[in-house]
Design a protein around this nucleic acid. Structure first.
Length: 1164
RNA sequence: GCCCAGAUGGCGGAAUUGGUAGACGCGCACGACUCAAACUCGUGUUCUAACGAGUGCGGGUUCGAUUCCCGCUCUGGGUACCA
């Protein structure tokens, strides 16, 4: 009987589904094991052979664990929200829910394309998934709980003292009783307030304060906004300042968005990595991403230009803030500029750009205050009240008094006035302005610069090198740049700033060689030495990182060294006995010198001492800095989870648990609205009804228009599998307590900084709140390598067509492009052609001429001549199914592919057309995609499973090549034949038991034969396969199976006692054939839960060992000796051997090394 | 630049703690079966005519190195004027 894999596989897949063979029990006496594949996005293109690679490995492991007696959880589902479905919806108008469903379940789409369906494709490969636990992130029953978790994040804050997230209620209690002075939280910058302050605030003020603490919070973030697309773009979606798709302009825009305070977990996310069984490379990627650096923040006072020049230079007139608290004011001003109230925004529109003929500044520091708007020239301040001003009437009065003292007039407006009648407000301002004198007319400058004591704050990981500071560099965008630049340097600085702003982020990053910068003319004071230190700006300093400023230590930092060298700035050497004439000394192992109290200390101790001293003298402190930013959690998209959030004014509130899920509404279009709101802005009745309760009177609040990002649903899906159908909780406590975290997680390393970091963050958060009993989601992870396509390309010659008229003038041809033949040349001929092989050129020319003549005959008025350029050719992709062994079946290609109907193929001497091969990513456009379906059809799922594993180590990238698949298929056929040794290949096994003498006991001495040989083959394989699977070496067991089957075939073994255990160990790799033969052996239960055979060392014991004998490490011959011999006896035997004499060439051996059961080495 | 991983026949790869380099499979060659082809089976296959050489290159440690150490080259991935 033949191995009819198609029928067998269909039957068993049906059996497994009907009997729910792989259903996992949620509690069991068996030990648990959780094997998970990374959540797939169900794309319309379906699976190619690269996708199931990881699934096959995890399935092998899951099946293996079941055989070992584990209760295995092995689920599958879909991360079904996402951009492609939305993009497709925009293009075709089909609801993403419809196309997503079809991508999973299969069908025929509106365009008539047949969609195979992920599930159908997966089913054909014979995976042992527990499909009753399937989840889809876009299913309201699933995202109900994503929304619920969001609510928990919103209702939590991070308590640094407890080092964990806590409920926000705890925080509110503290605010009520003690204010925020004692609260040690990870939060935005907030001013200190008292309990009295808190209690006096209204609901809105309190809520706004709480947003600064919540783990899910609203904040204004700079984003790449593309107005034409109505969406925010990621950095890599932008090329040369325009959107990659469509080439639309992109602008930086402040946008109010949801963020996640992942930074609170930075330290725990780094520390947690230690205990994880992941590859070092993924751990390193996460460590780099979090980017922890320890050091100190140090403040440098800025010397006034006046003092620096020593000649009474006028203070810049716009420097009006109180120098002592300047940096604070500036930071506040910056912050407030980003968060203008509506009234402020309206007023600003009418003031900015000298609309009233004078320059207004907004949120500008004056003395120790920040004025909402100020016209310095006319000394007029405009205040718009309504935020917190109501609370501090008294403070306002004091403020006005002080400002009046300074010669300012203060005009106050109310929010309502501005919003209700801006014209009246503007008229009033214009009137006052007209009355006030301009200070330009006055002789003296502003008097307020008590001293220019601005400070530049920097972070340094090397405070030990502080005595090596010889200059400072600010980012060109740094707030202080305008403030401190001296008039002489103004022009240069402005020019540099402009140049820097014109460079794209990419340009600034890639241009490392060009050292650029400009001197501000200002100096800072070295906090220890009191020396004057030049302040420069340079675009190698990034405004977005740290404080946007560095203290430059040219002797210890290469970029600083380059900068100093380039601009001829002094380089101090503070490292003992280190040469810094050619480059900076960047190692952390030098002894510090010329550094006052740090002298003679090694760097590490110097760091500690420097921090202590900096803190003691009060101009800085020890600090740990992270590169990690809070994660933006809003997307201006349709196809994602809606937020369970509605607004009362601009304050967000959560919807009630009982109203979850907030279901994604229907919209007529999936595009942003005309006024730039996200697609949900198109939804009708998109509001949350707050029902009358208590004193609340029932009203409607608009629901959030953004949706959640892709990582929301995938950050916790592994928990849902434990309890996929629970309507009351996201996961029942007893279930998560049983299953705990994922034991083996398989998927691509490309998720290292996305999914894998966010999922860890959410897991830690849920742990903090006590919902789950573990902190890390994925204990062991394997990153499978990409299966690359093996593209085929045909070389196309460049042909010319030209017409020469009577006067031999060459004209542009007036012929139809369709009539020009396309010449392709076998790739092995190309070289000849390039070498000007005359024969070949002549041959091709002749063919061209013939063709030209033929065409000319038909169209005498049209055609001129055809020619080709031997050195000009290019390659075009050929669908790989027309290629076998690099030979193109061009007749077949021409017949089936109209693209090639004008093609002429020039073959080599053997009449073959050879294509070029290239290993690259599998993609439709490269015609190199191999779907698993065709292979399953042709060879069967078991063959595909074994072959994908056989290709090589799971983690490695490898090219796909179907040629080898026949070998694996042959192995399964050979296995089948072992069981069909009866007449006419009918099923037959020998039921006689194994020789008693060898069961359990040591085998009889001498050459093993018959049963002993079969036992040895079997047990060697049991051992090898078990060890290999356990160390996740999935490719080597396949070889072991092959060797075993080859040996058993050679031995003509047909004993049940040998073949039955073999089936069990093979079942994880080739489950269908194993089940079939297992059933044929008379077993009634599925092989899934059979018992993995134990290997017996006794069968592997050899009586003889073939000793390789080497001379000076070079193997010369093999000598078979009994294993029982002692090393001395072995030595004797070797010396006595005549071959030894031959290789000794009469010399006496110096030494003989005998490693028992291994080798003999003779040293001559 | 920095961090990580890797480099072995014509190809995919094996060699788990230093002990016969090239298992297993593909491909290729030859042979058997067949009228023939396919399938299947068998034999051979690192290079070299041979002596010998040989695991990216150059050194080192060792009786012995694909394996350990030092220095490089190349490939892939990550990351980036990160202070």
């Amino acid at each position: 009987m033949q191995y009819q894999f198609n029928q067998i596989e269909k039957d068993w897949q049906k059996y497994w589904a009907e009997n729910k063979t792989f259903k996992a029990k949620d509690n069991s006496a068996k030990p648990k094991y959780y094997v998970l594949d990374m959540f797939p996005y169900p794309s319309g293109a379906g699976l190619h052979v690269g996708h199931p690679l990881g699934y096959i490995a995890s399935d092998v492991y899951a099946r293996y664990k079941r055989l070992l007696g584990f209760n295995v959880l092995h689920p599958m589902g879909y991360d079904s929200f996402g951009l492609p479905a939305e993009q497709y919806a925009i293009q075709t108008g089909q609801h993403p829910a419809v196309t997503t469903k079809m991508n999973i379940e299969g069908g025929i789409d509106k365009q008539g394309n047949v969609i195979p369906g992920y599930r159908n494709q997966l089913d054909k490969i014979g995976f042992s998934f527990d499909w009753d636990r399937e989840v889809r992130t876009s299913d309201p029953n699933y995202y109900k709980w994503t929304q619920w978790i969001f609510k928990q994040l919103f209702n939590s804050w991070y308590n640094k003292d407890a080092d964990k997230a806590e409920k926000i209620d705890i925080l509110i209690e503290q605010f009520k009783s003690k204010g925020n002075a004692d609260v040690n939280a990870v939060c935005d910058d907030v001013a200190t307030f008292s309990a009295a302050d808190w209690n006096s605030w209204n609901e809105e003020q309190q809520q706004k304060m709480l947003l600064n603490y919540r783990i899910a919070f609203l904040s204004d973030t700079w984003v790449n906004w593309c107005p034409a697309l109505g969406t925010v773009l990621a950095n890599d979606e932008i090329k040369d300042g325009v959107s990659e798709r469509g080439g639309h302009p992109v602008e930086q825009k402040l946008m109010r968005q949801w963020s996640m305070r992942i930074t609170a977990y930075a330290e725990r996310l780094i520390n947690g990595l230690e205990g994880l069984d992941w590859t070092d490379s993924v751990k390193d990627i996460q460590r780099n991403w979090i980017g922890k650096s320890q050091g100190a923040s140090v403040k440098f006072k800025v010397l006034s230009p006046t003092l620096s020049k020593g000649e009474g230079e006028a203070t810049p007139k716009y420097l009006t803030g109180d120098a002592a608290i300047g940096h604070l004011l500036l930071d506040n001003a910056k912050e407030m500029r980003r968060n203008p109230t509506e009234a402020e925004s309206v007023l600003w529109i009418h003031l900015k750009g000298k609309k009233l003929d004078v320059k207004f500044r907004r949120q500008h520091p004056i003395d120790s205050y920040i004025a909402d708007f100020v016209c310095l020239d006319k000394k007029l301040i405009l205040e718009v009240d309504g935020k917190i001003h109501d609370l501090q009437k008294e403070a306002d009065e004091a403020r006005t008094e002080r400002l009046n003292e300074l010669g300012y007039e203060v005009l106050r407006f109310k929010n309502e006035d501005v919003l209700a009648d801006i014209d009246t407000v503007i008229t009033k301002i214009a009137t006052i302005l007209a009355q006030r004198p301009s200070i330009k007319d006055e002789a003296k400058v502003l008097p307020f610069g008590k001293d220019l004591g601005w400070e530049v704050s920097v972070f340094t990981p090397r405070p030990d090198t502080i005595f090596g500071v010889s200059f400072m560099v600010l980012a060109p965008e740094h707030e202080l740049v305008d403030v401190i630049t001296t008039p002489e340097q103004k022009a240069e600085i402005e020019a540099y700033k402009k140049a820097a702003s014109l460079k794209s982020e990419r340009d600034r990053q890639s241009d490392i060689k060009n050292i650029t910068g400009a001197f501000t003319g200002a100096y800072a004071i070295h906090p220890f030495t009191g020396d004057k230190v030049q302040i420069w700006i340079g675009d190698y300093v990034l405004a977005t990182y740290g404080t946007g400023a560095v203290m430059a230590v040219p002797c210890g930092d290469q970029r600083d060294w380059d900068f100093a060298t380039h601009f001829g700035i002094e380089i101090k050497n503070i490292f003992k006995d280190k040469d810094i004439s050619a480059a900076a000394y960047t190692e952390k192992d030098a002894i510090i010198t010329d550094s006052d109290f740090l002298n003679d200390l090694p760097a590490k101790e110097a760091i500690k001492k420097a921090i202590a001293e900096i803190e003691k003298r009060g101009f800085g402190k020890g600090k740990t800095q992270y590169r990690l930013r809070d994660a933006v959690f809003s997307r201006q998209r349709y196809w994602g989870e809606p937020f369970p959030v509605y607004y009362k004014g601009d304050v967000p509130y959560l919807v009630d648990d009982k109203d979850l899920p907030i279901v994604l509404p229907e919209v007529e279009k999936y595009l942003p609205t005309e006024d730039g709101k996200p697609p949900l802005g198109r939804a009708k009745n998109w509001a949350y009804k707050v029902l009358p309760s208590g004193k609340d009177l029932g009203w409607e609040g608009p629901i959030e228009l953004n949706t959640m990002p892709g990582w929301a649903g995938s950050s916790w899906y592994f928990l849902r599998y434990m309890d996929a159908n629970n309507d009351n909780e996201f996961v029942a406590k007893e279930k998560v307590n049983y299953w705990k975290n994922v034991d083996l997680y398989i998927g691509g390393a490309e998720h290292a900084t996305g999914h894998l970091l966010y999922a860890r963050f959410w897991t830690k958060f849920l742990y903090d709140l006590g919902y789950i009993p573990f902190e890390e989601p994925f204990q062991k992870m394997i990153n499978q390598g990409m299966i690359q396509g093996n593209s085929a390309k045909a070389i196309k010659l460049l042909t010319h067509v030209y017409i020469a008229d009577i006067n031999n003038n060459i004209n542009t041809p007036q012929i139809d492009a369709c009539e020009i033949p396309e010449f392709f040349i076998s790739s092995d001929l190309l070289e000849k052609l390039e070498d000007n092989d005359i024969d070949l050129s002549v041959k091709i020319k002749e063919r061209l001429n013939n063709l030209g003549r033929a065409i000319k005959q038909q169209n005498p008025e049209k055609i001129g001549e055809l020619d080709f350029a031997p050195n000009a050719s290019y390659s075009i992709y050929i669908p790989i199914n027309y290629v076998k062994n690099n030979i193109l079946d061009y007749e077949d290609l021409k017949e089936n592919n109209h693209q090639f109907n004008r093609a002429e193929f020039i073959c080599n001497e053997n009449g073959d057309f050879i294509v070029e091969r290239e290993v690259e990513k599998m993609s439709k456009s490269k015609y190199n995609v191999q779907t698993p379906d065709e292979l399953v059809e042709k060879y069967g799922a078991d063959t595909l499973r074994c072959y994908e594993m056989f290709l090589g180590p799971l983690e490695q990238h490898k090219p796909w090549d179907t040629q080898g698949i026949t070998g694996v298929h042959g192995f399964l056929k050979k296995l089948w034949r072992l069981f069909h040794s009866g007449e006419n290949e009918s099923f037959y096994v020998d039921e006689t038991p194994i020789l008693k003498s060898v069961v359990g006991g040591p085998p009889p001495s001498g050459e093993l034969e018959g049963d002993e040989g079969a036992l040895k083959s079997l047990h060697k394989t049991i051992k090898k396969v078990k060890e290999d699977i356990e160390r996740f070496s999935f490719n080597t067991p396949v070889s072991a199976y092959m060797i075993c089957v080859n040996e058993l075939t050679a031995q003509k073994c047909n004993k049940r006692a040998i073949l039955e255990p073999l089936l069990i160990i093979l079942a994880p790799y080739a489950p269908h054939i194993a089940e079939e033969l297992w059933a044929k052996l008379g077993n009634k239960e599925s092989i899934t839960y059979a018992v993995y055979p134990k290997y017996n060392e006794a069968y592997l014991v050899e009586s003889n060992h073939k000793y390789p004998v080497s001379f000076n490490g070079k193997m010369r011959f093999v000598l078979e000796l009994p294993t029982a011999l002692t090393p001395t006896e072995v030595e004797k035997e070797v010396l006595a051997n005549e071959q030894t004499t031959k290789y000794l060439e009469g010399k006496t051996p110096k030494k003989i090394i005998v490693v028992p059961q291994k080798i003999v080495n003779v040293v001559v």
